[in-house]
């Protein structure tokens, strides 16, 4: 084991897990707001919920491509996704928004500034996600780190319903090791970088909790149409 670790920390060796994760990244999704609807908070929220639903389908098939995820029992796969789905959505928005100052790139055709967020009733959430974006921007988060961190967020979702705790721990360990190996090769100048990345996860969790609560209350209002998968996962977090 120590020998293997030493060997993996060399520029010659390709990081297999990170390479697989890069290859598993879902394609881009367009928001396509309905041009027939007049601009309103309901239109903005309908667009976001529809976008989230389509992204969720892609994120579930992405999860299946995380090395080791499909070896977990089906029940544990479900539990991890039911806990982490919003963290995954938010981390993707945050990464897309890195190059866009003070705006959230929900999709290439759906970029939201603070004013638009406020009129959709999403200002607090907008601010919280931007705080995360600023953290990652200041670290110059790389695509390799983003895909690995996203898989870690899923494996580390702290579901209370895990049946095979050891198997989930094994998945966390292999992803953690992949990140350590990547940083060892690409950021040897900053030995604390892995820790810094992991330390952004509490803010991601906090932001995700806020988002789920907010969309649950929108659901209860009943004014915004929501697709079944999005509703199913909102229910899972209540």
């Amino acid at each position: 084991e120590p020998h293997r670790k030493q060997a993996s920390c060399s520029a010659q060796e390709e990081n297999k897990v990170v390479t697989l994760l890069l290859g598993a990244e879902p394609e881009k999704v367009c928001a396509m707001p309905d041009p027939a609807l007049p601009d309103s908070d309901i239109k903005a929220l309908t667009t976001l919920c529809d976008l989230a639903d389509r992204e969720l389908v892609l994120n579930i098939s992405w999860a299946k491509h995380i090395p080791g995820f499909s070896s977990l029992g089906l029940s544990d796969q479900m539990s991890l996704l039911q806990s982490a789905w919003m963290e995954i959505l938010i981390l993707r928005v945050a990464f897309r928004s890195l190059l866009c100052e003070d705006k959230l790139v929900f999709a290439e055709d759906y970029i939201m500034d603070a004013e638009q967020a406020e009129s959709a009733g999403l200002l607090e959430l907008h601010k919280a996600i931007l705080q995360l974006v600023r953290r990652y921007r200041s670290m110059r988060l790389e695509r390799e780190e983003f895909v690995t961190l996203k898989a870690i967020a899923l494996a580390n979702s702290d579901s209370m319903h895990i049946e095979d705790v050891e198997a989930v721990q094994g998945l966390q360990d292999s992803l953690h090791e992949a990140l350590l190996d990547y940083e060892c090769v690409h950021h040897s100048e900053d030995p604390r970088r892995t820790g810094k990345l992991i330390m952004t996860l509490p803010l991601l969790r906090q932001t995700s909790t806020k988002a789920v609560r907010h969309f649950c209350s929108i659901k209860q209002d009943g004014r915004v149409p929501m697709h079944k998968l999005f509703l199913e996962l909102l229910d899972a977090n209540v």
Binding site: I60, S61, K64, H65, G68, F69, L74, M78, Q82
Partner: peptide, 20 residues
């Protein structure tokens, strides 16, 4: 878990999962 039919179905649809 009974309630989570869509998630269950999407996870069961095979799409070349990768094992370690």
């Amino acid at each position: 878990k009974e309630k989570h039919k869509i998630l269950h179905r999407l996870l069961q649809n095979s799409s070349s999962p990768v094992d370690l």
